[in-house]
Computed example of a mutant assay.
Amino acid sequence: MIAFKDITLQDRDTITAYTLNSPRRNCDLSFSNLCSWRFLYDTQFAIVDNFLVFKFWAGEKLAYMMPVGTGDLEKVLKELIEDARHEQQPFCMLGACSCMRGELENLLPGQFDFTADRDYADYIYLHTDLAMLKGKKFQSKRNHINKFRNTYPDYEYAAITPDRIQECLELEAEWCKVNNCDKQEGTGNERRALIYALHHFEALGLSGGILRANGKIVAFTFGMPINNDTFGVHVEKADTTIDGAYAMINYEFANHIPEQYTYINREEDLGIEGLRKAKLSYQPEIILEKYMVCLHEQPIDMIKW
């Protein structure tokens, strides 16, 4: 039985020692996401034979993530399978990226079923695309930014610091009121995770930006590195009555993310039509497909999600 433990803020260095040095770019591995959403998934972790492993609950269903590390992956996978059996649950992993499918099939041929879900694919962009917006394909984005600059010539962009957290919370509360987010489970959960992240901003290792127009906050955003070449943007909120606020905060933050990060991961669209359209409009370099991977020949009623 694997000795899993709850994720806490104090586990940041332990977890990021594995994730930052991994080639994997999926948003699920951001420490902020892991910690801020633990209330919903009861996420736990362990170190097994130089692999970082995660275990969580999606509703009443147990799930794992693909182990992160180097060494005997087959051995660790078999230990996870045994852990699921001890829990009297089927063995399933969520968020397994496309590149892992071949690896799993080579290690344990014919033992896994793979199910892709487009709603949970990550949108990954070239950092230079979002920071420069060059070319015809970004003309409409430049138009929004230019309009914002012309309308609010004295606008201000500043880094999120402890003294600016309250402004972000106030804008989030107003956004939530306008969008009735407390009446919807998905946005209500997002709000809880967002507020936790803002209250523990520095401890989580987050960085972000705030946009003001006419002296008033109109947008904010934040995120953190996923690995050594990919920065994850986890939250972006703006006053929808301010034309160009979303485009401007996106552009400014991209220009303040350190140049070492070749890619920016702006996470999934969750099947929301407007969100998908917006994410596609920024011309992703990669749409990172992710799979649910379940051990073959388990009782069907046990793996129905």
Rank of each mutant, 00 (worst) to 15 (best):
D269A: 08
Q166V: 01
I195L: 08
A159I: 00
K137C: 13
I226K: 03
H199D: 14
H199N: 12
A247S: 08
G205I: 05
Y246A: 07
R191N: 14
Q260P: 01
D239I: 09
R266H: 10
R212P: 00
M248P: 15
R142A: 08
K177T: 07
D239H: 11
D182V: 00
R276S: 14
R149D: 13
A158S: 14
E259Y: 03
V218R: 04
C181P: 04
V218K: 03
L211R: 11
K279Q: 04
V218I: 05
L211C: 08
Y251C: 11
I160C: 05
I217Q: 02
Y261S: 01
A238C: 15
N146A: 01
E267N: 14
I272V: 14
L198M: 09
C181D: 07
E170P: 14
A203K: 07
E167R: 09
A278C: 05
E259T: 13
E170H: 15
Y261E: 05
P258R: 05
N250Q: 06
Q184K: 09
K277D: 06
D229H: 12
R276L: 15
K147S: 13
E156C: 01
W175F: 11
K183I: 11
E268I: 14
E167V: 10
F253C: 06
E190I: 02
N250K: 02
Y251I: 06
D229E: 15
G205D: 01
I226C: 10
E273Q: 11
I217L: 02
R191E: 15
N227F: 06
E259V: 14
K237N: 00
S207V: 12
C181A: 06
